[in-house]
Write a protein that binds this DNA or RNA. Structure first.
Lengths: 134, 134
DNA sequence: CGCAAATATACCTTGACACGTATATGTTGT
DNA sequence: ACAACATATACGTGTCAAGGTATATTTGCG
């Protein structure tokens, strides 16, 4: 009964705030452990341990630079998150569209009425107002 | 000294596999607790508890339908994840571009050596990618 | 009214994991 | 080889969240 190492899902990895901070820092450029430690003001063992998790999950890779280790991002896990998110994208953009149409209608109403009459939604709710631009 | 309840980050919410399963199920259409319970084969209290977490995090909302409660998705938290992911998108698409260029070069080589072998590098399949400027 | 169905909640236990502190490993320069 | 630095790991501890079981709550129906 040997457990090798349960490779955890990318979602568990990015659930940790400090790890997200490290990733956001590394997106700018590669950095050494010491740099991360100073910029994020977290103790060095904490940084090292999180980097280990990130490396084993494929989020980062490291190269040796003298006594330092330089860590940089790898793209694959992010793409995995993106792929998961994709199934919801159509759904939520539909909602955003609905919201935008609604706001457009409100704008329209304000324009047509007069600015001095802040009133409620009235019967002409079905203004056939076509496409917004952009 | 009562803490209301610290609203946890969207990332902690989606870190849980059962919750991701529920979300993926709800993207198709709204469902009752019992439907989720049966389709995902998880005990009812588990479903209810996860739904509670999802509701409090804004991932779902519910309406009452007789004895049932119908749960459906809400878009905002997904957009939040997407927003976080956005900062890495430029980075990773650069990598994808590099990979594609590399594969293109390989194709090129193959074409030059074996003109009869059709290669199927399709431009721009589904990779959301901003305009590369060389 | 009383029973059954659907859902929510309470309580307990267990395991994972993040942290701090201490120490090990490794590398450079003198 | 040694000192100083940079990074990794080991160990003990506390917290918190997920699961299981039992029970409460709400609503529909005969």
């Amino acid at each position: 009964m040997k457990y090798i190492k349960d490779m955890e899902s990318v979602f568990e990895i990015i659930a940790e705030p400090n790890r997200r901070a490290i990733l956001s820092l590394l997106v700018l450029s590669q950095k050494s452990v010491g740099e991360i430690e100073r910029k994020l003001r977290m103790p060095q063992p904490t940084v090292s341990k999180h980097l280990r998790v990130l490396r084993e999950a494929g989020f980062v890779e490291s190269t040796v630079d003298a006594q330092r280790r330089l860590y940089r991002l790898k793209p694959e896990p992010f793409q995995e998150v993106d792929a998961w998110l994709a199934q919801f994208r159509r759904f939520w953009s539909a909602h955003v569209d609905a919201l935008e149409r609604h706001l457009d209608r409100m704008d329209q109403d304000r324009m047509e009425h007069h600015p001095s009459t802040p009133t409620k939604r009235k019967p002409n709710e079905k203004t056939t107002r076509p496409k917004p631009r952009t």
